[in-house]
Amino acid sequence: MPSNDNSRPAEAHNAPAQHAGSHEIQVAGPDLDFKPVRLDDATPTGAQIAAALGYRPDQQVTVLHWFGTTIEDVRPDELVKLHEGETRFIVAASDGASRLTIDGQRIDWLARHISVATLRRLVNIPAELSIYLEHEDEPDELLDENHQIDLGLRGVERLISRPATWKLNVQGELLTLHMPTIVVRDALQQAGFNPDQGWHIFLKVEGHPKEPVELDTVIDLRRKGIEKLRLTPKDVINGEGPSVPLRAFPVLSVDEAFLDAKFPSWEAVLDGGRQWIVVPNFTLPPGYSVQQVHLALEIQPTYPAVEIDMFYLSPAVTLSSGAQIPATEAMVTIRGQQFQRWSRHRTPTGPWKPGLDNVKTHMALVDNALLKEVQQ
């Protein structure tokens, strides 16, 4: 493991004056601040290069030869041919070189740590490519230019460069972006939403309350924890201004994704100690006395271990013929509004399965029950 002492001895600064030979090399420490040093020998050894810088034979010194985009360790007794354009050396007191690979290329380094910016310069990675630390069981990690890579840790030596991408979920549509910032208006357009339709727009960031944003807001995708942009139509009723859907209790992420995508105006309602998901303006199949209703599902406190059972419609409906529908006689009140209870249950052959069933699968039961009554 390299030591932390990467400084050159004081006498190294006078090395050019002490050697009057005709062969010039460029020497730097880990900072890559190169200075000329002259040697008498056209094929010096690693020990000769270290000695030219004032290091004593008993010191632990690492000498690296940097040519092209290749960095190789030079042993004390190894001869180096000073070809034109291949005369850069990186030298520091350490007890050996560490190793990493980037894009499959092996790089030796004379310290335990190396910055991303230094690595970029060593292997000539263009600015438009970002550097990532590869992981096997989790997403690759984007490294900041000032990040110090610890080569002493297991697994940190595998790095790759590629065009940087960022992800943004816009109301269920996942965007892959090649710039770290995006204007909200552009995000909506790329996700297929008309930004001028009229939306309440919220940015969800893990661990923070949802943040209202405007069409001209710039989102920095480098901010940790960004989850999604949520859109809700601006419904204006009786001139009272826009109404924001009520989200009085948290729901499962799988349910939220489904409801956001299919029923953006859904609400999570608490009433009398009971939890309800309410879907406004739910369209019924042809054959009913009304075309649209409010649909409600009761969510038990122990859901999803406990199933969602039945469903509720407001206003109460009949068939277009005027006929009553069996097992819909009971009524419940939610926020002062009467809902018709549809007693429809799962069968023993198709029981509720926690971890597999959710709001989406229960909505399939709702759709089947509604279609069955009108024989579709």
Rank of each mutant, 00 (worst) to 15 (best):
P209V: 12
S98R: 09
R247D: 04
H13S: 14
W166C: 06
R112W: 11
R185I: 04
H294F: 12
E373P: 01
E78A: 15
A305Q: 13
T347N: 09
P315Y: 05
L142W: 07
P280V: 07
R341W: 06
D108Y: 15
V116L: 06
Q291E: 15
S130V: 02
D150T: 07
L295N: 08
T45C: 01
E267S: 12
R335Q: 15
H135K: 12
R341T: 12
P354I: 07
L259W: 00
D260Y: 04
L174N: 11
E136A: 14
L133W: 12
I49G: 03
S243L: 05
L221C: 05
P9E: 01
D150F: 10
G152W: 04
L252Q: 15
G85E: 13
L215I: 09
D77I: 03
S94V: 10
A248N: 14
E72K: 14
D103L: 10
H83Q: 14
P245F: 06
S115M: 08
A257R: 12
I219A: 11
F311R: 00
A191F: 03
P195T: 07
G287A: 06
Q275G: 07
F202V: 01
D144R: 10
P285I: 09
D357R: 02
D255F: 02
D144T: 06
E298P: 00
Q324T: 13
T181S: 11
S3C: 05
P250T: 07
L177M: 04
L313V: 14
H13G: 08
K210F: 02
D41V: 08
F339R: 06
A323S: 13
